[in-house]
Design a protein around this nucleic acid. Structure first.
Length: 285
DNA sequence: TTTCAGGTGGTGC
DNA sequence: GCACCACCTGAA
């Protein structure tokens, strides 16, 4: 059953490039079609027309379950003035300046904590195409069917209960490998111990990082991704092999990363990280 | 057929 | 606290 549009919202958010935002490694469930992006938030399917970054607004069409304008605005980080932040970061050095020029329009999304937690557990020692495969397989197998859009069957991300009730063999979906155990372990802990995933919102960055690392399969890097992409912690600066290369090659930093990051990127480490990451990934050097 | 990419957890010092 | 290795699989 092809989904019928519920309504279209005009979001007044400037400096937004959907293609770059969805392709900078922070989210895994947006798909690019010929002339639009299709994504899933909760039990809603969304469609965004391919954009012109010079616009100060864009249209989002909602299908399936409704979603408040406020929820959309928050998801796209609408309250933040990127222009001002990026201008300040650009002045720091030529690398940041080039990275910000190239990544213009990237915004850091505020995604669902549980979905982000599980997605980044799956991301460990893994690459983006495989992460997407596993997440789609989990959604198709354990998530609620939302409907069909442009011939695509869309499923909600499963809940902790959904995954808690699945056994390890069933969780061993395409490309997930040994990470199924971490997903299982984490969902069991959340359901059995009634863990409240809103807790990190109230904690300072370092405390929130330690809190997230209670989950099996969550180390420093994965915790930082979750903090940045779900909890809005701008201090988080996920260091993967690419970022390690950036810090080494561009800044000559081989160790003591956190001191350098705090000292150098002062107010917006997470935003600086996203732009540098996108820049490095696209240079293919 | 083999090699490679990619974080975490566990072990041993 | 650091060095090392196992873990798994799609793609090249």
């Amino acid at each position: 059953m092809e989904l019928k549009p519920l309504r279209t919202v005009e979001l007044k958010i400037a400096d937004f490039d959907a293609t770059k935002t969805f392709n900078c490694g922070q989210c895994f469930r947006w798909r690019q079609l010929e002339n639009r992006h299709i994504g899933i938030i909760g039990h809603s399917a969304l469609s965004i027309e391919l954009d012109d970054i010079r616009q100060t607004k864009f249209n989002v069409t909602i299908y399936g379950e409704d979603l408040s304008d406020e929820a959309l605005y928050t998801y796209f980080d609408g309250a933040r003035d990127y222009r001002n932040i990026l201008e300040r970061l650009s002045k720091k050095d030529e690398h940041l300046s080039a990275a910000i020029h190239e990544g213009e329009g990237i915004r850091i999304l505020n995604q669902d904590p549980f979905e982000t937690l599980i997605s980044f557990i799956i991301s460990s020692n893994n690459n983006i195409p495989k992460i997407k495969m596993s997440i789609e397989a989990l959604a198709e197998k354990f998530g609620k069917f939302i409907g069909t859009l442009e011939g695509l069957d869309l499923y909600a991300f499963p809940s902790a209960e959904d995954l808690h009730h699945a056994d390890l063999v069933a969780l061993n979906v395409k490309a997930i490998g040994y990470r199924a155990k971490s997903v299982k372990n984490t969902c069991d802990a959340i359901v059995l111990n009634q863990i409240d995933l809103s807790i990190p919102f109230k904690l300072a960055y370092k405390e929130a990082q330690t809190w997230l690392m209670q989950f099996y399969g969550v180390g420093e890097k994965v915790a930082d991704c979750i903090l940045l992409f779900a909890y809005g912690k701008d201090d988080a600066f996920p260091i993967d092999t690419w970022v390690k290369k950036i810090l080494g090659d561009l800044y000559g930093v081989q160790s003591g990363y956190s001191d350098f990051i705090k000292r150098y990127f002062i107010d917006f480490p997470g935003i600086a990280q996203q732009y540098l990451f996108y820049y490095m990934r696209n240079r293919k050097v």
